[in-house]
Design a protein around this nucleic acid. Structure first.
Lengths: 236, 236
DNA sequence: TGAATAGTGTCTGTGAGACAATATTAT
DNA sequence: ATAATATTGTCTCACAGACACTATTCA
């Protein structure tokens, strides 16, 4: 005979009364793209982009959505992320981190689905995205996306905005070589505000190293090219 | 006839090939307890505590574990957290936030379980924890806990350590009235390092307000009692 | 040469670290 | 009076904001 206390515990842990859920991972893949400047004198314009796929099926058929998919029966969440990233970008070794888990009962009309959302940062130039398309982040946020993917993207940006101040994850989105101005512009795109060049240089000076190379044919003074210094601060 | 591209998409989204998962929430409930100082002259000792339950069943029967339970079929993750917190602490309106989702395939020997972990901060004095027990955080970390709950607790502490610097969530763990020294000691318990009283006072001065009351019978100079000022910075 | 960008120098204010000094109570 | 804590004062240093200034290239 069970005492009252033990009964109470059993309520929580009885394996027979758990409901079956589907679990997916959805990934906010972010990258920086460049478009030609307005004249030979002007720098290229950078923009923050997010990778989206088009849903072929109901629900939200034809609607854009984050790349994602169901987690396999004996597959870890991280493994599912790696598998999907490989398929959508052609890359291994992409930096990613867990963002948040979305579990509102009605978020998928078909069934109960828990979505574990991730952020991934890629060097966009290296990606081969045959089954997906890059969208400017502003455009993407204005679009009608499938499920709650619009919320997920804006949560991802909030997270990123917070983290680039006290970690070095920004470098995962940069190409191997970059100028300080480019790096500053990426910060500005994410933080949505202008920074002072002098102050910016000072603060990141110890995180980067000169490569010895310079930009060419810029129509004005060339810029030193830098790379990340080893041993950055990734934090939690 | 489907073109190759569409087939590829269908692979990811075919609703019939999803695996059934159980989803639980597990909560790291943290609170500050006081034990009497060594003499009438000395202040009470505060310690950071975590709420644990004892598992009555396999697996890990008899082992201590985080309070948690299966998420109901049409219950939101947050609703599950509120339900469990109410049962284990007797309190509504507890501050909590999502920590991380743990989904290793072998983390529960019975079946595939995804655990969505949360942090909750409570005023320990107000809790009625008939079905759980408070443990000093150091003790808890040294114990052999069920599942991966040891990892979850240490992740929770890392998160808290990061967040108390740039948010005001700390106040959710404080009683209505507190002295600056007490508040400082809580910071020190979480950050695991000593702070300078003068600097500490300066930095938190604008977040708290005097109540007009003082500590009594302290065996030495009494301290002003403060409360939180409205409109704190909770951030993401 | 000049437009456009790269990069430096420096003043100033804010805020943290360090630590000394003063204040107040119960016994 | 004294132990123990509370609270304030102040010097210094690091660093970010602001902004002026110099440097360099290509068409």
């Amino acid at each position: 005979m069970l005492i009252e206390k033990e009964k109470k515990f059993l309520e929580d842990y009885n394996p027979s009364d758990f409901a079956p859920f589907a679990v997916t991972v959805d990934i906010v893949v972010l990258g920086i793209s460049k478009s030609a400047g307005s004249s030979y004198r002007h720098l290229d314009n950078q923009s923050l982009n997010v990778l989206l796929v088009t849903r072929p099926d109901m629900p939200y058929a034809g609607r854009s959505a984050l790349p994602g998919g169901f987690v396999g029966e004996s597959e870890g969440l991280d493994d599912a992320v790696r598998r999907i990233l490989k398929k959508k970008t052609g890359l291994d070794d992409i930096y990613f981190e867990q963002l948040y888990t979305y579990g509102k009962p009605d978020r998928d009309p078909r069934m109960r689905v828990i979505s574990c959302a991730y952020i991934a940062l890629v060097d966009l130039e290296k990606t081969d995205v045959s089954y997906a398309r890059w969208f400017d982040i502003e455009t993407a946020l204005d679009m009608e996306l499938a499920f709650d993917h619009g919320d997920i993207i804006s949560d991802a940006l909030k997270r990123l905005k917070g983290k680039i101040i006290y970690t070095d994850i920004i470098f995962h989105i940069m190409p191997e070589q970059f100028t300080i101005s480019e790096l500053q512009e990426v910060y500005e795109l994410i933080l949505r505000k202008k920074l002072l060049p002098a102050a910016f240089r000072r603060t990141i000076a110890d995180k980067i190293a000169e490569t010895g190379e310079y930009t060419k044919a810029a129509g004005h003074r060339p810029s030193k090219l830098y790379r990340v210094k080893a041993g950055g601060n990734e934090c939690l």
